[in-house]
Design a protein around this nucleic acid. Structure first.
Lengths: 179, 179
DNA sequence: TATCAATAGTACTTTAACGAACTGTTCGTT
DNA sequence: AACGAACAGTTCGTTAAAGTACTATTGATA
């Protein structure tokens, strides 16, 4: 993923997983997302691109130049297969057992992956500064904390986030607020 | 950055900034970090690598094959310069005014950058699971609200999310809580 | 003094992904 | 019927960074 002349640092490129087959490079974030998404239901390349774009508010739009060859490559590797075709040369892909296995094996490293994400974020925040912490930075920190909340604290976490949500809702609909 | 056969997704590669000079590719996270770090004090390539590794607990160790050529390139571009040499062919680099300008212009996009980081986080969390609890539902709603917060309410939103973060932090480190 | 580890860097291949340009096929609108 | 937009995909060059192997120079230790 690369930013469109927006002069904004981007990332996504550092997501790497793999080596489950003893091979060297096994693809990064796009690959992982493909497996993850197809696990839910079969999709076309176009569907996948659109889904990511929608989910991230347009901040990540995987390039067609990457995604389509990636799909073909993953098919070759037996991770996904074409389950159907449609109009306009549409290919509908679904995940295979092999692909599912790989995904399972990868997400098992949830903890370590999260740690790395956190470290990355740390550097990011250091560079961009946090003296005037934007709401998004807070949200990202909240995100991290929620990832590591033990089950017995879930209820409390729900309460806290619920309160936050309520306050933000009030803020959002407060017309007399700060105008 | 790539993981050492740890089968863990990584990232760092997608950080991109630049285009301030109207050029196409202006380097990513490593470049940005170099500028950021040299701003504090002059350093060698080795210093920088070590610094990043130390700061991230070894989760990000920029490769020498990348960093040294990057330093030379940035020198060519007038972003940094050699301020001294030392034993063992050591080159000590410092940032130039041009480099400082570029860094300033880049971190000015703090808001957008933070948002993009968050989006990436979101996908990451979705893939690795654990986001189907009520707290995560709340977080998702919070995210949606933040997307539509007008600038004049930004400070208030920061306050609200900051409080939420604080409470979650306390929850996380509360050992007597629910054990 | 010899050896080894740490500092410092070079060259080059591979990986992951972007971006741009292009082709082809519908589908909706005028 | 013609046109434009959207769906669907291909080709290829570029960028960012990792990974590997290697060289060279100290500095510490036995």
């Amino acid at each position: 993923m690369r930013f469109r002349d927006g002069d904004i640092p981007g990332f996504h490129r550092h997501m790497r997983f793999g080596n489950e087959s003893g091979h060297h490079g096994r693809g990064g974030m796009i690959r992982l997302y493909i497996l993850h998404s197809l696990r839910k239901e079969p999709k076309t390349g176009y569907d996948l691109i659109k889904e990511i774009s929608d989910k991230t508010g347009g901040t990540w739009v995987p390039s067609k130049g990457t995604l389509y060859p990636m799909l073909r490559k993953m098919e070759d590797e037996g991770l996904i297969r074409i389950s159907g075709t449609g109009t306009r040369s549409k290919n509908i892909y679904e995940i295979t057992d092999g692909g599912n296995d790989l995904l399972e094996r990868t997400i098992r490293h949830r903890r370590e992956a999260g740690e790395k994400m956190y470290m990355f974020r740390k550097i990011f925040s250091e560079i961009f500064g946090r003296n005037n912490t934007p709401a998004w930075e807070n949200l990202s920190d909240i995100h991290h904390l929620l990832e590591n909340i033990p089950p017995e604290k879930e209820a409390k976490a729900t309460e806290i986030t619920g309160r936050c949500l309520e306050e933000l809702r009030r803020l959002a609909e407060d017309e007399s607020g700060n105008s």
